[in-house]
Write a protein that binds this DNA or RNA. Sequence first.
RNA 1: GGGCGCGUAGCUCAGUUGGAUAGAGCAUCAGCCUUCUAAGCUGAGGGUCGCUGGUUCGAGUCCAGCCGCGCCUACCA
Length: 655
Amino acid sequence: MLYWYLVFNLIEKRILSAVSAHLQARYGSDLAVVLEQPKQASFGELAIPAAFQLAKSLRKAPRAIAAEIAAEIGAIEGVAGLEIAGNGYINVRFDRGVYADGLLRPPANAAVEQDSGKTIVEHTNINPNKAAHIGHLRNAVLGDTFVRMLRAAGHDVEVQNYIDNTGVQVADVVVGFHYLEHKTPAEVEALINAAQPFDFLCWDLYARTSSYYKDNKDALAWRSETLHAIESGTGEVCDLAHLVADAIVERHLKTMLRLNVMYDVLPRESEILHLQFWATAFELLKQRKAIYLETEGKNKGCWVMPAEAFNDNGGEEDSKVIVRSNGTVTYVGKDIAYQLWKFGLLGKDFYYRILQTYPNGHKLWVSTDQPSGDSPAFGKAARVYNVIDSRQSYLQDVVVAGLRALGFEDQAERSIHFSYEMVALSPRTCVQLGIELSEEDKKRPYIEVSGRKGLGVKADDLIDKLIETALVEVESRHADATPEECRAVAQQIAIGALRYFMLKFTRNSVIAFDFQEALSFEGETGPYVQYATVRARNIIQKLEARGEKLPDFANVLDKAAMARQLESEDAWQLLLAASKTDLAIERAIVSGDPAHLAKYAFQLAQAFNNFYHEYHVLNEENPEKRTFLLWMTDYFRSQLECTLGVLGIEAPPYM
RNA sequence: GGGCGCGUAGCUCAGUUGGAUAGAGCAUCAGCCUUCUAAGCUGAGGGUCGCUGGUUCGAGUCCAGCCGCGCCUACCA
């Protein structure tokens, strides 16, 4: 892993090693020293709780031990002083001048660690049979932000979006077109190019087909016929399926691009079938006895994985069917093959072609079953993150168990289910959408969405609504701007609001989606952070409009001057908050939750807003202070822009 | 029944490996725009951290047992 230079981290490390060495020499203790963030900023920058841990073995009061350590440890570079506090804390105060100087003039020898191989992040994975909804948005925004975090920290990341273009869900829409509406491929093609978005049309058709099955059980035969046709790879129904899936994938890619979400490659299930990925995996699984042919009971005739493989006390659990008694493979089976491929363990690869080139020049590849020239090397990862909601954790466990049963212990260990809770609807939003609720549902805190019932909020509808809401605000504030400019700004604000909303909740909390909350641009929201960034840039723009240039801070600000300016506790706290961006990114990666970075972004914006109100930068008369405040402004600006960038949020030119 | 998760202010949620006075936002109330944009800032009120016990110098955090809620537990994906 590559870390860019962290002044804070550097001082932290110095303290850690100094304290460890001292405890070893003085007490013969090999205690693992840790540092804490003091509860209150006024206590200092870091706290050492080591005295508490030593109290027992030394049979001494923590406070006395703390005093002893503080008195005897000696000087640590970058540390101005140590204080005893509470029952035995040692609070650390940084040398403010040294710290600021480190931020302004970072030493050249940045710590570099080698990345240990490629990381694959798989996210989005929407069934290509209907429009994307808010649940898919959570997946894509979480995945994309996690990718940005990893890349910011120097990781080599490959982004995959798996397309299940041969599954039941696609089949059901094909049933709708073919059997219910008697449409030919040519007629469906006309619909794809029609004014109404094709994925919206399919949203309704899918719901209609699903409800038709309910009243006409015989119609389920249409589904299996369609699935067989798709699997055979030929015929009108199969053509129809590809037509539908490809058109909807294109729509999904457009929707995701609106949110600044892009991919490297789309592995498709059709290729997993045609290139016999499953057949290869099946042989492996049989060979190594990871699955067996059930000879009795309800699963008679199926190839199953025993429950003990994926469940610690699997005695009571049913084994998991991998191959059905009719010889067809389940989704989990295909997923095991896919997971093996991701690690380069299958001994097979897809062929690839370029599907499209994004506006920024990035190329998106898609799997194909025909040799088609050069392509980047996909797959063969050292680590795999599957961004999939927690409802599928059972299936993810089975996939990992498959790897383990094949003897790929390391890869099983590095198969990470990046799980998150679902997005449901608040009862209030259901009412707004005209969804009728039963008395029972009304009492629930949230209502689960259902694509099958067509119950949910479409991603594009939500984005449009956000843009319209933002547009009203932008136009009311900038009467002089052109409609195109206003729209562009409104779009950035809308996406900022949406991405932040999807990130502000920790992964394992259910989001009860509420329009009123999601459409808010005030308080803890994306636009709040964007607004702070715009303000910081405005100060610098105003300066330049007055014919002044931003000083070359490294030449005009020395350590002593900064130390003088940082005698103000407020200024120091603000600088400290602003300097912790890298730390926040690193912690969010370690904890695996982008919500932590979103929280930091909000706190950073709060800090800047405090700065903005407390100091009037351009009117400052003291030259040294004015230069210093300009530096702080510029530093805040760059830190805010960096954080927003990692969150995938743009800062508009004005708000 | 089993697995996973949740329960913290009126509402929506944070709370790092146990640590100092449990925090935000929204909502409510009281203030702040001739000054770099008020999508902002300042202040006030608001808490039995679901319950009971345990571990220890110390528990919202760890352990056990309860209570309530959600999801999963398909030859669907």
